[in-house]
Computed example of a mutant assay.
Amino acid sequence: MNILVAHNYYQQIGGEEQVFLAECNLLESYGHSVYRYILNNDQIETTPPLELLGKTIWNWDVYQEMRSLIRQQNIQIVHFHNTFPLISPSAYYAAKAEGASVVQTFHNYRLLCPNALFLRDGKVCEDCLGKVIPWQGIQHNCYRGSKSASAAVVTMLTTHRLLQTWNRQVNAYIALTDFARDKFIQGGLPVGKVFVKPNFVDPDPGIGEGKGGYALFVGRLSVEKGIDVLLEAWAQLSTKIPLKIVGDGSLASEVNRATQQLRGIEWLGRRPMDEVYKLMQNAQFLIFPSKWYEGLPRTLIESFACGTPVIAANLGAMSSFVTPYETGLHFQLGKADDLVTQVEWAIAHPEQILQMRQNARTEFEIKYTSSESYQQLIKIYEKACIQ
């Protein structure tokens, strides 16, 4: 099968880029011809605002390039990861014009929410869910804290809702969890077009022993990731179990300040994946305090692959991913005191945590391997071709 996989890179490389690359490599390993179409958000800095608005709604250059590439390479499937803002929905029309089937993976909630997170002022917000014109995104400056930038996103969403782009130009959507699928259907997408396929991890890092005697956080240091909750909890926990933090982001200065005030916190910054895997394998458990619904972070799957239980906020994807007292624990969203309670329980029950390690690893082997992901992806492609 000839497959074109398209992705609009973010300025800060993250999980979506990892999934994009991993899925391309996976398809090639099974003998498919994979062509990559990539744009990068670094171009935004040199693009005048009005021109950027136009491209966000409909990028004629991408439309022409995409049609030409599909025609030349006899592409059968065009699989999109992120199209915002430079690839634009015009790429869907290009694919359909050339007779290719269109698949779109949802890594966030951009189609339903201008800031893509269902998060405002540090709390879950669904004000724009189901609205043809998500005007409240402009009212609250939801995208990048800017009214003009928010207006650009809302204009793009409204234009393509009125054109029925999301219903007519895409053959199949991939949601990463049942929770996400339900949200997109609630937002108006056709039930029969939204399928669930989680992310995967390959190569398999292997199970660890968890004997490092520390808790671990891996991720972006930003508001939506619940860094404030993490640090507040460790103000009470630092003498009971050390915390290692891997990652970087806008709240790096606050994390650095916490390391100076609390002896039990160590900030390691960005680390190569082989080091991250070793840290996961040796961690007693992973902490995941995110404040937004999430898609399905690779960090969670990587933790299970390493046999490391997860203590996560009871919200969105995390609610179904972690089974309490089997593969990890839940704490109340945004409640540092409850996170403290769950960590203290984990410390006091080493035998149960040991069993959770095996359960987490088993969950990975059943649901999140490359072979399982490939089988699911091909079935979705087949369904897309007959939509």
Rank of each mutant, 00 (worst) to 15 (best):
L163P: 09
L163F: 14
G137H: 04
Q73C: 11
V153D: 01
M156Q: 15
F106R: 01
N108S: 09
P134A: 00
I75N: 04
K193G: 11
P114H: 06
F106S: 04
Q64S: 05
V191W: 11
K123S: 14
V196T: 12
Q73V: 09
R168G: 02
S150C: 09
A94C: 07
R181L: 08
Q73Y: 15
D182A: 15
L189F: 10
S101W: 13
Q164W: 13
V196D: 06
C125E: 05
N171Y: 01
F118R: 13
N171T: 03
Y63I: 02
P114C: 11
N141R: 07
S90D: 13
T165Y: 12
C125Y: 04
W135V: 06
L157K: 08
R161L: 06
M66L: 15
I75L: 13
I70W: 05
A175P: 12
A151R: 07
I138N: 07
A91H: 08
C128T: 03
G188A: 06
K55A: 11
R161V: 09
L86H: 00
T165W: 04
T177H: 03
T155N: 06
W60Y: 15
F195P: 03
V124I: 15
T177K: 08
N141L: 00
V153K: 02
H160P: 00
L119W: 02
K131W: 00
A94E: 08
L129K: 12
V124L: 15
P85V: 06
Y92T: 03
C125P: 01
V124P: 15
S101C: 15
M156G: 10
V78W: 03
A100V: 05
H79K: 02
I174N: 00
G188S: 09
C128W: 02
F184P: 06
W60G: 11
P85Q: 11
T165I: 13
L189C: 00
Q73P: 04
Y63F: 15
Q72C: 06
L129R: 12
W58N: 01
S146L: 03
N115T: 10
L157I: 14
R120P: 08
A172K: 08
N82S: 09
R144D: 14
A116Y: 14
P198N: 10
P89S: 03
V78L: 12
K55T: 07
S146D: 11
G130H: 04
T105L: 12
R181N: 11
G122K: 03
P114A: 10
F179I: 01
N171F: 00
Y93A: 14
Q73R: 15
A95Y: 04
H81R: 03
T56R: 04
R71M: 02
G122R: 00
T159S: 14
P89C: 13
I133P: 05
G187A: 12
P114L: 09
F184I: 01
H160Y: 09
Y173V: 05
R67I: 04
A100F: 10
I185R: 05
T83Q: 11
A94Y: 07
A91E: 09
W135Y: 11
N108H: 06
L86Y: 00
C128M: 05
L176R: 02
V103M: 10
Q169R: 12
